[in-house]
Design a protein around this nucleic acid. Structure first.
Lengths: 234, 234
DNA sequence: ACTTCAGCCTGATTTAGATCATGTCGCCCT
DNA sequence: AGGGCGACATGATCTAAATCAGGCTGAAGT
């Protein structure tokens, strides 16, 4: 059991929604939060559960997904350090519309519903940060929806790889490694495809020199070529 | 030219985001807004334009859509009286990610960017209403995304018809008429399908007794049967 | 060490829905 | 009245990607 982290010294403070909080409020938040460690495979909350508060990710990686009728899951987004989970359901006070599962061991702070709601009402800047986040998630989801409709799997996969490379990339000798361990099935469920199709396309991309595949590692070697495949408009 | 409407007496006040505004603030808003009439086919704003403010719909129907590479459009949502357009782009101060086009003659009030931002900062309840709306739009879009991935066109169409029937339904003698005039192509672009497929499925639904089709009118006669087709989980 | 099992990979087959082609109907415009 | 046009309709193909069916590999468990 590690010592509990301090919000006042949280490395994700500036990138999260609490970056603009005053010192006193941050101290209050620090008192109010509780911290938990989760390991790969554990769930933070489940689709259908009533929301009890929000989760602020200090470290690790989490996938947020919906389960369809036949159990097939659709990954809505990945969340890492600085991201906040569960505020959407809180606003409408409806049950969670998705499940959050840890894919890389994580440290996550929990903030009670009542506390965060009060804090948000008192602090317009916090409210604005939340709005901005919701807005940007909405924009992203709308783009994905549009991509689902008028792009093929190949384009969607290359776009996903580009995004992952930018947001989760780690420079290695001969390229940029995607630094989240995702199975092919998970990649597939982020773009609405099957694992077989993703496997085939990854091999194609490797054969075409865009990627190197070393087991679970994916290293992007030719981002420019890959981007061209994605065929992004605007 | 009709006389300009008064926010203080706006019939959509309670359903819109300004329902909780104080009398004084509402009066300020009333001074600040400008009102425009648009007829079918006119655009309120275009994808790629910088946002200048928000649009509050007093009457009429508007479709909000994204255009794909080949010009194929994806309708993101329909907006009617009480709905507000354009605040998403305002928050991130990015260009509009979609186009808004009038499909039924509309009266729309425009509120300047600076004014609405200030108002939102001053009024936590307004901020909350905006957040709630963003949250519910996000939830809806996430559900649509998930449906795109693990449901067939038939299920998506019946779900859409159920939603339209509930949100835009008008009771008629032998059922509920969907009271927005949408072309088959527009229906198609709301569920990621082609107009041909939608035409075929509508005929099927009619043959199966769920609907009556009279030209452009769609009358839902058996919502229970239709709902069963939609196969909605949870 | 052997078994098990999940993740990966590859090939063959199937299919939902797109695309293409063609025709009809009602509506607006000279 | 005729011509043009956009929406609706229906049949015939085509195809991207799912599904099905194996088989391989490496890590975990007994």
């Amino acid at each position: 059991m590690k010592t509990a982290p301090q919000c006042t010294a949280c490395p994700t403070k500036s990138s999260g929604i609490f970056g603009d909080l005053s010192q006193e409020r941050l101290e209050l938040l620090n008192q109010a939060k509780t911290t938990n460690h989760y390991s790969r495979g554990q769930n933070i909350y489940y689709e259908g559960n009533p929301p009890k508060g929000i989760f602020c990710i200090a470290s690790g990686q989490i996938k947020v997904f919906k389960s369809g009728a036949d159990g097939k899951e659709t990954i809505l987004r990945l969340a890492g350090p600085g991201d906040v989970l569960g505020y959407r359901s809180l606003l409408s006070d409806a049950e969670h519309g998705s499940t959050a599962e840890v894919i890389q061991d994580a440290m996550v702070c929990f903030i009670d519903k009542h506390f965060i709601m009060t804090l948000t009402k008192e602090d317009p800047l916090l409210a604005f940060n939340v709005m901005r986040r919701l807005g940007s998630e909405l924009a992203q989801t709308e783009t994905r929806l549009s991509n689902m409709i008028n792009k093929g799997v190949r384009e969607r996969l290359s776009e996903l790889l580009m995004v992952l490379q930018q947001t989760r990339g780690k420079k290695v000798g001969d390229g940029v490694e995607i630094d989240v361990r995702l199975t092919r099935a998970e990649l597939a469920s982020m773009i609405g495809a099957t694992s077989e199709t993703v496997i085939r396309l990854l091999s194609d991309f490797r054969d075409e020199g865009y990627l190197a595949l070393e087991g679970k590692r994916i290293i992007v070697k030719d981002p420019v070529g890959l981007l061209a495949e994605a065929n992004i408009e605007s």
